[in-house]
Simulated scan of single mutants.
Amino acid sequence: MTEAVKGPASYFPSIEQKYGRPIAEWQSLIRESPLTKHMELVSWLKSEHGLGHGHANALVAHTIAQDKGR
């Protein structure tokens, strides 16, 4: 049996479908941004790339958590 994806990653299929870019591309944009604070990055994704708040928040949260684990 496959476990359901939980947390921010649960948004990834709908993000890719709605915005037409793979998650890796969104994460690259976040990592290359000069912004570093969570809400700054969320606001930037919303204003510059047209993402909804939940999708932007999920991408930023997951990317930051991933980077802290490196």
Rank of each mutant, 00 (worst) to 15 (best):
Met1Asp: 07
Ala4Val: 12
Lys6Glu: 14
Lys6Met: 05
Gly7Ile: 00
Pro8Asp: 12
Ser10Thr: 08
Ser10Leu: 00
Tyr11Met: 11
Tyr11Ser: 08
Phe12Gly: 02
Phe12Tyr: 11
Phe12Leu: 02
Pro13Phe: 14
Ser14Ile: 01
Ile15Ser: 04
Ile15Ala: 04
Glu16Tyr: 11
Glu16Arg: 11
Gln17Cys: 00
Lys18Gly: 05
Tyr19Pro: 00
Gly20Gln: 07
Gly20Val: 15
Ile23Glu: 08
Ile23Gly: 07
Ile23Ser: 09
Ala24Gly: 10
Glu25Met: 06
Glu25Val: 07
Glu25Tyr: 04
Trp26Arg: 06
Trp26Ala: 09
Gln27Arg: 15
Gln27Val: 15
Gln27Asn: 07
Gln27Met: 15
Leu29Gly: 00
Ile30Arg: 01
Ile30Gly: 02
Ile30Ser: 02
Ser33Met: 06
Ser33Thr: 07
Ser33Arg: 04
Ser33Tyr: 09
Pro34Asp: 09
Leu35Lys: 09
Leu35Glu: 06
Leu35Arg: 13
Leu35Asn: 01
Lys37Tyr: 12
Lys37Val: 03
His38Gly: 01
His38Glu: 03
Met39Gln: 10
Met39Phe: 15
Glu40Thr: 04
Leu41Val: 12
Val42Lys: 11
Val42Trp: 07
Ser43His: 14
Lys46Arg: 15
Lys46Ala: 00
Lys46Pro: 03
Lys46Met: 14
Glu48Gln: 11
Gly50Ala: 11
Gly50Lys: 15
Gly50Met: 12
Gly50Trp: 14
Gly50His: 11
Leu51Met: 09
Leu51Gln: 02
Gly52Leu: 10
His53Glu: 13
Ala56Met: 04
Asn57His: 13
Ala58Gln: 06
Ala58Arg: 08
Leu59Val: 10
Leu59Ile: 10
Leu59Thr: 04
Val60Tyr: 06
Val60Asp: 05
Val60Met: 06
Thr63Pro: 02
Ala65Leu: 03
Ala65Trp: 06
Ala65Arg: 12
Gln66Ser: 09
Gln66Asn: 01
Gln66Thr: 12
Gln66Lys: 10
Gln66Pro: 00
Asp67Gln: 01
Asp67Ala: 12
Lys68Gly: 06
Lys68Pro: 01
Gly69Ser: 13
Arg70Glu: 10
